[in-house]
Amino acid sequence: MAGTEDPGVELTPQQLKSRRQRNIAIGLSVACFAVLIFLVTIAKLGPGVLNRPL
């Protein structure tokens, strides 16, 4: 069915730039949240969490 396919939404350069900025912001937020949860886990469990038999 080549030729009849919906080309989808064609974004303007400004829209592409904004989308990229939003994606970067979401990525950074998720990374910071993951780091925060890691630090909270260590704070709540204490350094003893690292002392475990391997």
Partner: peptide
């Protein structure tokens, strides 16, 4: 998809 909102708007 066509939004021009940047992180500053949010």
């Amino acid at each position: 998809a066509g939004s021009e909102a940047n992180p500053g708007d949010y």
